[in-house]
Design a protein around this nucleic acid. Structure first.
Lengths: 200, 200
DNA sequence: GTAGAGCCTGGACAACTGTACCAGACGCCT
DNA sequence: AGGCGTCTGGTACAGTTGTCCAGGCTCTAC
């Protein structure tokens, strides 16, 4: 017996298929994923997709897993902060995060929200979605705490919901200068009001 | 020539099909809509769905139209307010609205967000989605103004995004006492902080 | 070289899809 | 009664889908 050179799980072709799947999801949504569409996008044969993944849902689940991993990484990047930052820097960081979310192939933003909705229906996606929410929440909590805002837990919770709602709106109708013309002013209002108006 | 007693557009069976379509959307998402599923749900023959609607997308579009009409009605109901209300009543009204959104067949909540995402992709849904956003925004603006909060436009914008984000989270992982245990406290924080901490 | 194990693919299959067609049933007017 | 639109259910059909499998390929061990 020999050790397989190409272990199924880390075969580069397998990765290509996953990437292609994400692209397909981004373009047409989770439900536009078909073996054929993915295979064509990845430039591999149809059977490859069923060879590397037990079923379509397995493929989708793993693709979403990958997406979440990246999204989580993105949150961490933008929220990892030194112990003390100013309110202005807090705002900058959240703005930078939102910007990253929509600048990256805007597709993925939509895909994230789609996953959340799908998770409301499909049991097997719940853990994934939950993991994602927690990572989000952790990041926000940490950065808010670093800024020394009063009642950081509530603040993080509120800020996060606001960001989610705003990004969802953007996903629906992408507009030109969303970040600077719309998002930053509102976020600034929200954060400064919270910083000044909240009893410690 | 006679005027048809049963104009196609207001035939009760037609309405049944639309209602059934909404139920199907609520249960399995927009993409789970098939002529056969709708026909079975409505208890009519397969051909009826193609008889009353030119195509599947026409059926879906009209169903979403109906959904939006109801959702808009719901917003109006909860935000129509006398010229002067207290901050507490503002909170109560928004809470009541959120409660209505999730208590009604929770399905519809998911369907609304799905529509928003779909609108980001499909041109033909944009007008629908835009109409919906505007109605939402109008309602929030009005009720916030009635409460005499400072900078009502910004407040409405922020509150609405927060509500959207929170409801989206609920759609993802419906939890027991969402409204009273989670939503109301956070909203109260947000509104009172805004009311007290914002320079007029 | 040869054998054989793992890797990959073309092609097939049954299931399901949107849509169209048709023969007839119902209700209403003359 | 007769006749004519309105409506209904059954069925057909072509296209797409997920999944499977038999066989071809490549590489290693001998």
């Amino acid at each position: 017996m020999r050790t397989p050179v190409n272990s199924k799980r880390q075969n580069p072709r397998r990765q290509d298929i996953l990437e292609a799947t994400l692209r397909v999801i981004g373009e047409g949504g989770v439900n536009s994923v078909t073996h054929r569409a993915v295979a064509e996008e990845a430039g591999v044969s149809l059977a490859s997709t069923t060879y590397y993944f037990d079923s379509k849902s397995a493929l989708i689940e793993e693709a979403l897993d990958l997406m979440i991993a990246r999204s989580t990484e993105c949150v961490r990047e933008h929220t990892a902060a030194p112990p003390k930052i100013s309110t202005e820097e807090l705002i900058d960081r959240i703005v930078a995060f939102a910007d990253a979310q929509i600048s990256d192939p805007q597709a993925f933003l939509t895909a994230q929200y789609e996953l959340m909705l799908e998770a409301g229906r499909e049991e097997y996606l719940r853990p994934l979605a939950r993991r994602w929410t927690i990572a989000y929440m952790d990041g926000f909590s940490q950065v808010v705490e670093s800024a020394g805002l009063p009642r950081p837990k509530e603040a993080a919770e509120i800020f996060m919901k606001f960001v989610e709602g705003a990004l969802l709106d953007y996903a629906m109708t992408p507009t030109g200068d969303f970040i600077e013309a719309y998002f930053r002013p509102l976020l600034t209002d929200l954060v400064t009001v919270w910083a000044k108006g909240t009893p410690g």
